[in-house]
Design a protein around this nucleic acid. Sequence first.
DNA 1: GTGGCCACCTAAACCGGTTTAAACCCTCAG
DNA 2: CTGAGGGTTTAAACCGGTTTAGGTGGCCAC
Lengths: 342, 342
Amino acid sequence: MSKVRPTIADVATRAGVSKGAVSFALNGRPGLAQATVDRILAAADELGWRPSNRARSLSVSKAFALGLVITRDPAVLSSDPFFPAFIAGVESVLAPRGQALVLQVVTPGEEEAVGYRRLAQDGRVDGIFLSDLRHDDPRIDLLVELGLPAVTLNRPEGSSPFPAVCLDDRPGTIAVVEHLLELGHRRIGHVAGPPAFVHATARSDAFVSALAEAGLEPVAIEVSDFTAAGGTEATRRLLALPEPPTAIVYANDRMAIAGIGAAHQAGLRVPSDVSIAGFDDSELAEFVHPGLTTVRADPFGFGAAAAQTLNRLIDGDGEVPDVELPPARLVIRRSTATPASQ
Amino acid sequence: MSKVRPTIADVATRAGVSKGAVSFALNGRPGLAQATVDRILAAADELGWRPSNRARSLSVSKAFALGLVITRDPAVLSSDPFFPAFIAGVESVLAPRGQALVLQVVTPGEEEAVGYRRLAQDGRVDGIFLSDLRHDDPRIDLLVELGLPAVTLNRPEGSSPFPAVCLDDRPGTIAVVEHLLELGHRRIGHVAGPPAFVHATARSDAFVSALAEAGLEPVAIEVSDFTAAGGTEATRRLLALPEPPTAIVYANDRMAIAGIGAAHQAGLRVPSDVSIAGFDDSELAEFVHPGLTTVRADPFGFGAAAAQTLNRLIDGDGEVPDVELPPARLVIRRSTATPASQ
DNA sequence: GTGGCCACCTAAACCGGTTTAAACCCTCAG
DNA sequence: CTGAGGGTTTAAACCGGTTTAGGTGGCCAC
C-alpha cells in the first residue's frame, strides 16, 4: 500500500549513495563510476522512481512546458482547421521530451496581453508560439519585455528578435490564380481575410501580383473575416456586381465553402457559372459538392517545426536559424472549371 | 534593472515581518492583526510580487492546472467543432482562478494510457476531463488507479466514481426524427458514429426508439466514423439501396455536410429528393447549401460546467453532484422538407 | 614517507513557497 | 505579584529535486 511516490532520497538510500549522486546519475553528469551509475539506475528502476517535475521546476527554474495563446472568438475558433492539426504537430515533439503544452484561449474582446503576462509571470511555460501574426504586432515587444522566448509562425515585418518558422502562402495563391488563368478566367475576384493579419495580406498581395503578372486587375477584393458568415456576405457582394467575376479566390476554405453555398443560393452553378477556390484543404473541402479546389498546407508539420525551433531557442543552442517549410501546393478539384461565358 | 522577480522574503523584509506572516496574509489565514495584513499586502503590491507557482506547487503538492487528453487522429480532430469551443468554455472558468489547461493529443494508434500516465505521474495536473467516453471505458479504472480526479463528459454506463457532466443528445435526435415524420417521411436512414463511443450509440438508440414510437423501423443504419470521408461512403451506400431513404439523419454535421455533397454528386437534390439532418450545428451548417437542419448543443457551456465540477471535486467540497445541462435542440433549415415521392 | 593529483562521492545550501510548534507580549484574574 | 490565557508573530522544518564546495581514498612521483 505504498501509495506515496518514492523520492530521490529513497533511491539514494536504496543504492547506498547520496541524493546528489542520484541526481548526477539521472542527468548523465560525469564524475560517477559506471558501476555506481548502474546501481543507482537499477535502484530507481526497482522503486519505479520518476523525478518530480514540480521539484525540478523549482530548482532549475524551468517549466518544461510550452505555451500557445489563441486569440480568437470561440465560435470562430471552433471550425478553424489549423489549430488542432498544429497542436498535434507540436505534441509530436513535446511528448517524447516530457514537455507539456499549456493552452490559453483569449477572446478578442479582452486585453490579450494579460494572457501572455499570466503565462509568463506564473512561470508556467518556457516559451511561446506566436500565431496569427499581425502587422506591427505589439505582442513581439510584449514578449521581449516579459523575457519570454518565442517563435513566430511566419515572419513578422520589421525586425524580430525571435526565430520564425515560415510556410509561404504565396506560391499556393499564385498557383491558384495561374490555374484559373489557364482555364480562361479573366474576371477574378478575391475574398480576403482581415488586413490586420500578416497572412491575410500576404495572400491578397500574392493574388494581386499574380494577376498583374498576366496584365490583369482583380474584379474586386472583398475584405472579410475568415468566417463562414463573412464569406457568404462577401460572395453576395461580388456576385451582385454589374460585371460579376467568373471565378473567386478565397483566403480560406471556410469562406470558400460558404461561398459555394451563397452561389448556389443565388441560383448559380459551381463551377459552370462561377469557379471557386479556397485555401487550407480542410477536411470538408474534398467532400462538399463540388469538391473544392484549394491549397494544401501542412499544419502538423508546421507545429512540429515550430516546437523544435522553440526548444532549440530555449536550450540556448546558439543562434537559431529561421525555418522555411515546403510551401503549400495547389489541389485541383471540381469547383474550378472553364468559364461558361467568356 | 531589477530583472529578478521579488520573492516572498523580499516582501517580508519590506513589511518587517517573517516569511510565514506574508504567506498567511496572502492566503487570508486568520491569526494576523488586520494592520499587519494591510502592511504586508501593501508591501507586496509595491514590489509587484506574485507568488511563484512553481514553489507553491512543490509545497502544497498541487499543479493548479487541469488536463485534457484528446485521443483523436489529427486529421479528424482538425475539423471537430466540439473541442475548440469546449476548451474555450473550460478556460472561461480556469483563467480567473489562475489555473492553466494542459493539453495532450494522443493519436489513436499509440497506447493512450501513456498519455494519462504521463500527465498524472509528472504531476502536471490536478484533474482530468474524460471525453469521448467509450463503452466499458478502461480509462475510468486507469484514472482510479492513478488516483487522479476526473469528470466524465456524459455518463458512462456502469458505475463510475467520478461526477458526470451530461448533455443529453437524445432529445435533439428525437426532435429531428419527429420533425422528419411531421414532414411526411417514412423511409428514414441513419448514419451513426463508431459504436464504441457512448455518444454515438446514444444517438443511434434515440433515433431507433423515436422511429419505433411512430411504429416505424429505420430503412438502414450505416455505421460510420464521424469523418467527412466516412459520411460520404455511408451516404452512397444508403442511396444505392433498392428502396433508398427519403431522409437521412447523421450523427454529426461533418458527415451530414459530406452527405449533402454525396447526394448532389449522385444527381439528387436536397431536400426535394432526400432530406438531410446533422448534429452539432457547426459553423458551416448554416452556410452550406442548402442550410443544414441540425441539432445545436452548447460546447462552451459544457466546458465551463465541466471545469467547475472538476474544481469542486478537487477542492474536496464533499460529494459533487452530477450536472445536467440543458439538452441540445433542433435547428431547422433548408436541408429538410416534405419528400417529393411519397 | 609524504605531497600532490585525480577520480569519486557527500554534505549542505538552495529554489520559493507553506505549515507547524513554539515564543512572545499583553491583559486580566486571583 | 504571579500565573493563566488569548491574540500575534516567528523560527524552522518541509516539499523534492539540483548544484557547489569540499572531503576521502588510492596511486604515483620524488
